[in-house]
Design a binder for these strands. Structure first.
Length: 270
DNA sequence: TCGATCCTGTAG
DNA sequence: CTACAGGATCGA
């Protein structure tokens, strides 16, 4: 269940293990994950190519292949992308697989099958990603730009942070954590937050994500499933009813945009 | 802009 | 059984 830090960890591991490998066979077990593209299109454009590089844009994983083809993988809620030593034995939750030499394989494993893959020709991928906001861990993500953009929106801060067009890669956990660290209510409209607090939020986003990437990379470099929620020091997420680490008041859970938002009603006032 | 929807698993 | 899950898109 990945946000930017977990997706980043997946990318790094993939780079370490599969860069330069030739993809000798491709199989789409669940055609829905390729929608609206045909499984045959994916199989045809990926088979026989070499994995040249692995990039991340927000929560999108970009597998750049020889010949300029780009395979985009989005893990959504429960997806995972990893290398297996023997492609003959796969969990039933694998929706897409690419066989490498020596029986190894790269697999897209997704129990809920909400994740998506898509194939793009050279120069096509930019268009697909054009609506995604700035990378929060890149120099392009300046506090000036963040504050300027924030002024344009009346969205509640939590929904704003989760909007991939505004900032790339934040999800339900780290949006909540950044808001807690910046002491901003998740309900407060972005354009009504003071520049000083926005500067604090900008810094909090970078801090939280940087720490979470480290944690995710560490956790994910050992075999097994994701478990960053246990590793990363969560202040509010999933802690409904438990005491706030700063003031002791019970953390509250509310619904925003159909998702749960956790926050401290005292530390994060409107 | 909001709710329904896509899927499956797990916890209560 | 119901509620909920670290996401995003679509139609009303």
């Amino acid at each position: 269940m990945p946000e930017l830090p977990e997706v980043e960890a997946v990318c790094r591991k993939l780079r370490a293990e599969a860069l330069g490998a030739r993809i000798v066979a491709v199989k789409v077990m669940r055609p829905a994950v390729a929608k609206p593209q045909a499984p045959e299109l994916i199989e045809q454009s990926v088979r026989g190519r070499t994995l040249r590089s692995v990039d991340r844009r927000g929560k999108n994983i970009l597998l750049r292949l020889s010949g300029g083809t780009v395979l985009r993988v989005h893990l959504r809620m429960t997806g995972n992308l990893y290398v297996v030593p023997d492609i003959r034995f796969l969990p039933s939750t694998v929706r897409f697989s690419m066989e490498l030499p020596g029986q190894r394989g790269i697999v897209f494993d997704d129990p809920r099958a909400l994740g998506r893959i898509s194939c793009h020709g050279p120069g096509e991928i930019e268009q697909v990603l054009e609506d995604i906001g700035p990378e929060p861990l890149s120099p392009a993500f300046t506090s000036q730009r963040f504050i300027e953009d924030a002024r344009q929106s009346r969205l509640p801060s939590k929904l704003y942070l989760m909007d991939q067009r505004k900032v790339a890669g934040l999800g339900n956990i780290y949006a909540a954590e950044a808001l807690f660290q910046a002491r901003i209510s998740p309900l407060k409209a972005m354009n009504r937050i003071s520049p000083a607090r926005l500067r604090g939020l900008h810094a909090a986003i970078i801090e939280v994500l940087t720490a979470a990437v480290e944690s995710a990379v560490r956790t994910y470099s050992t075999p097994g499933e994701f478990s960053e929620a246990e590793e990363f020091p969560v202040a509010v997420y999933g802690r409904e009813g438990e005491g706030c680490f700063a003031c002791g008041k019970p953390v509250r859970r509310i619904a925003q945009g159909g998702r749960s938002t956790y926050f401290c009603p005292r530390c994060q006032r409107r």
